[in-house]
């Protein structure tokens, strides 16, 4: 009789660590998107003031990238989805 191997449980799609630790939504600079448009998109998606959005837009432009939001992974993914829909280069990084 062949030994039956005990079933192994697959790991969760996302580990608890990934879900619990805060994630940063980052906008990356690109040579195409207009600065005015980037600020407008930040206001529309995150609801920030015009001043705050322009500060973030300038940070993207001058430093090449900027953190625009920090929080849970799922909400961060939703924001990146919206930024991608607006054709901005954006990604997620785990907070330090």
């Amino acid at each position: 009789m062949n030994a039956v191997q005990a079933p192994t449980r697959k790991s969760e799609t996302r580990s608890k660590d990934q879900v619990d630790k805060p994630w940063q939504v980052i906008i990356l600079d690109d040579p195409v998107n207009l600065m005015e448009y980037v600020a407008r998109v930040i206001v529309k998606i995150f609801g920030y003031s015009r001043e705050k959005a322009e500060e973030m837009m300038m940070a993207v432009h001058q430093r090449g990238k900027a953190v625009v939001w920090t929080g849970g992974r799922e909400k961060a993914e939703m924001y990146v989805n919206q930024l991608h829909s607006a054709q901005l280069h954006a990604t997620l990084e785990k907070s330090e």
Binding site: H84, S85, Q87, H89, L92
Partner: peptide, 23 residues
């Protein structure tokens, strides 16, 4: 563009399966 944007995401996000087709 959708592929390029998906390339900015990690594998856990399943971007290529879920978001990329929508974009």
């Amino acid at each position: 563009l959708p592929q390029k944007l998906a390339g900015l995401m990690d594998e856990d996000s399943m971007w290529e399966d879920i978001v990329m087709p929508e974009l």
